[in-house]
Design a binder for these strands. Structure first.
Lengths: 197, 197, 197, 197
DNA sequence: CACTAAACGAGACGGTACGTCTCGTCTTGTG
DNA sequence: CACAAGACGAGACGTACCGTCTCGTTTAGTG
C-alpha cells in the first residue's frame, strides 16, 4: 500500500508564506523579515513553516526560484547578437530593481555572512543560473562568430560580461548605466571574434 | 577655555573592541559576532560600546578603516604599467582571503540587507576606496598612453577592471583566478590605448 | 465552544517560580531577588515569567497568597476565648519569623515605597486578611460577651489587638514578646465586655 | 596643628543634596530617587555624594534627622495630661502626611527590605525617637498619676499607645482616625492609673 | 461511516541577544 | 584637595525572535 491517509500539504499555505516573505522583505528589509512575522502575515502557525522550510533563507530561496528563473532567462534571438546581448544585460540590470531582484540581492548579501546559506544558494539557484548564462552566451557567440568558443574562454567572457554590472549594483550600490552595459557587451563580442582572450 | 574636564576616551578600550570584533567575525561569522560577545571578549562593558558605536556594523566599519586602507592602496610604479596593474589586482584578490577582507565581505554583504548600513559603508570606506581606485588607475593609464583619460572613460575602465574580480568573489563565491585577472588588466590597457570605449 | 487550542499554562513552572522567589527572598533579600535570578533558579525563561507576572512584586504576592492564608487563619475554638485569642496572636507573631512571614514583611515594606505595589497588596491580600481578622475577632468577642460588637467598635478592637504587635515587629524591629501580646489580648476582651470604647 | 589646609566640606553642597533627595522622594518615589538623579538635581558631581554618604539611604537618614526630630518631639504641658497625650498622637499622625513623614515612611519600608538599612535606622533615629517617646510618656504618666511607672510597664504602654496608629498607617495604609487615637490615649492613662498592665 | 493519521492554528516554553538604565569606582582638569 | 564632569566595568531591566514542544480541530483517504 503506497498512498498515505490524511490531509496533504496545502498549496495555499505554501503560497501565502512565499508571498508574505516577499512582501516583508520589500517592506521591512531582511532583518525585519522574521519567521514570526511571516507566520503572522500569512495567517499560518510557526510550526507549519518549520515543517516545510529550514529557515527564512530557505523560504526566500523558494520564493526566488518561483520568480527569478523566468526573469533572468536568455530569450530567443530577436535581433543581431549584439542587440540581443545588450537587451539581456539591460533585463538583468532591471531585475535588480524589482521585488524579486531584491530577494536575490538579499540572498547574495546574506551569502557573504553565512557559509551554509552561501552553499545552498550556490548549489541551487546560482549554479543553475550560471549554466543558463553560459548556455545563453554560447548561443550568442555562435551566432556572432559561427563557431563555439572553448569552455574556459566562455567562462572568462561571462565574467567580463556580468562582472561590471554586478560590481556596480552590489558594491557601488548604483544602477548600472547604459554606457557600462554597452561596453561590456561590445567587448565580449569583439573578444569572442578575435578568439584570443 | 576649550578643554573639557574629566577622563578622556580610552584608546586601549577602542583597540580591544576592534580586535575582538575582528576576531569574532573570523571565528564565529557575522551572526555570531554580537555586541555581547565583543564586550565579553574585549573585557569591556556593553554600555561602553554603545557609548562610542551605534551598532556592530559601526564597529566593523571602524575596524575596516583601520586595516583595509593600506592593503587596498595602489603602490608606486615598480615595473611596466601592465605589470603593476596585474600586481594590484592580485593584491586585491588576495585581500579577500585575509581577516580584514572577510570584514569587507561581511560589510558588503550586510549592505545588501540594510539600507542604513549600505549608506554608511558607501559614504565612508567605499567612496574613499573608489577615489583611490580611480586615481591609481589614472596613473597607470597615464604611464601607459602618455595622457590622461576622460573621467567618464576612467569610470568605465575601473568597472571593467574590478567588476569581474568582485563578481567571482561575491557572486560565484570562488577565488578569482589568474586568467580572469590578467584578461581584465590587459583589456583595460588596450581600451585605454585605443581611447575609444 | 469554550476551550482554547494549544498548550496550557504549566503548573510546574508556576510553582517553580514561586518557590524560587521565596527562596531568593530569604537568602538574598528583596534587592537580591531579581527576575533574572528567579528565572535562573527556577530553570525558566525570563519571558515565561513576564508572560504571567507583571513584576517581582506580583510574584511575591502570588507566593504569599499560596502560603500565608492558612498560617494567618483564625482557628476553631480550642479553649477559653482569652486562651484562643492569645494563641492566635502568638501564631501571628511567629509567622513573621517564617519564610512566608519574610515575604509579607518585604511586601509591606515595599508598599511604603511604591504606590502601585501598595494598592495591589491592599486590594488583595490585606483586604482579605483584614476581613478574616475582623471575622475571627467577632467570633471571640461573641463567645466572651454573648453578643456581637458593633462594627466600628470591632475595627477599633482589631487595631488595638494587632497594632502593638506590628509596631514591635515592623517599626522597632524586635520580636513581639509575650508580655505585650498578653496585654493586648486581655485589654481587648475587657473593653469588649465593657461595651464602652 | 589642628586645622587642615585646602577647601573644607561645602555646607551648601550638603544642603543642596539633602533638599534634592527630599524633593525627589516626594516627586518620584523611593525607586525614582537615584544618586544619579540627586546629583543632577543638586548640580553636584556623583563623586562628591559618594565622598560624604554611603548610599541614598544614608542621605535620607541625614535629611530625616534634619526634619523629623522637632516634628516628633513631645511638647511642654499645655493642658491636662489626657489632652496633651491626644494632641501628641495627632501630631504624630499628621507627620506621616508631610514630606518629612514620607521620608520616614520610606525608610521604615526600606528597613523591611535591607538589614543594613534597618540597623542604621534603628541605631540612629529610631533609638533616639524611642527614648524621646518613653521620656515624654513618662512625663505624662507622672502628671496623671503622681508617680513614675516601672520601666517594663512604660515600654508596654508606649507600644499600646503608638502601635494602633502605626498599624493603621503602615499596614492598612489609612490615616489614623480620631476614634482610634482617642481610645489609645484613654486606655494608656487608665492602665497607668491602675498600675496594673 | 467510523477510523486513522497527518496538516494545521495557536501559543507556551527555554534560550540568547538586544539596547537601556543605574550602580559605584576611577580619571582628569579647574579653582 | 574639593569639586564638576564623565568614562568605565558590572549587571538587571523588559522586549523580540529563535526553534521546539504540546494542544485541540480539521481534512482526507482506508477499511
Amino acid at each position: 500500500m503506497v498512498s498515505r491517509t490524511g490531509p496533504r500539504r496545502s498549496e495555499s499555505v505554501r503560497l501565502a508564506v512565499l508571498n508574505a516573505a516577499d512582501d516583508l522583505l520589500v517592506e521591512q528589509g531582511f532583518a525585519g523579515t522574521t519567521i514570526e512575522g511571516i507566520a503572522t502575515r500569512a495567517g499560518v502557525a510557526k510550526q507549519t513553516i518549520y515543517r516545510w522550510w529550514k529557515s527564512k533563507v530557505d523560504i526566500l530561496l523558494d520564493a526566488l526560484a518561483e520568480d527569478a528563473r523566468e526573469a533572468l532567462a536568455w530569450r530567443e534571438p530577436a535581433g543581431t547578437p549584439a542587440e540581443d546581448l545588450v537587451t539581456h544585460l539591460h533585463r538583468v540590470a532591471g531585475f535588480f530593481e524589482e521585488p524579486a531582484g531584491q530577494v536575490l540581492r538579499a540572498l547574495l548579501g546574506h551569502a557573504q555572512l553565512d557559509k551554509d546559506a552561501a552553499a545552498s544558494l550556490r548549489a541551487g539557484f546560482l549554479r543553475e543560473q550560471r549554466e543558463r548564462d553560459l548556455e545563453g552566451l554560447r548561443g550568442i557567440v555562435r551566432r556572432h562568430t559561427g563557431s563555439d568558443p572553448e569552455e574556459a574562454t566562455l567562462v572568462r567572457l561571462a565574467d567580463l560580461l556580468l562582472g561590471p554590472l554586478h560590481y556596480r549594483v552590489l558594491v557601488l550600490g548604483e544602477q548600472a548605466d547604459t554606457a557600462v552595459l554597452d561596453t561590456s557587451a561590445r567587448l565580449v563580442l569583439e573578444l569572442a571574434a578575435r578568439q584570443d582572450p
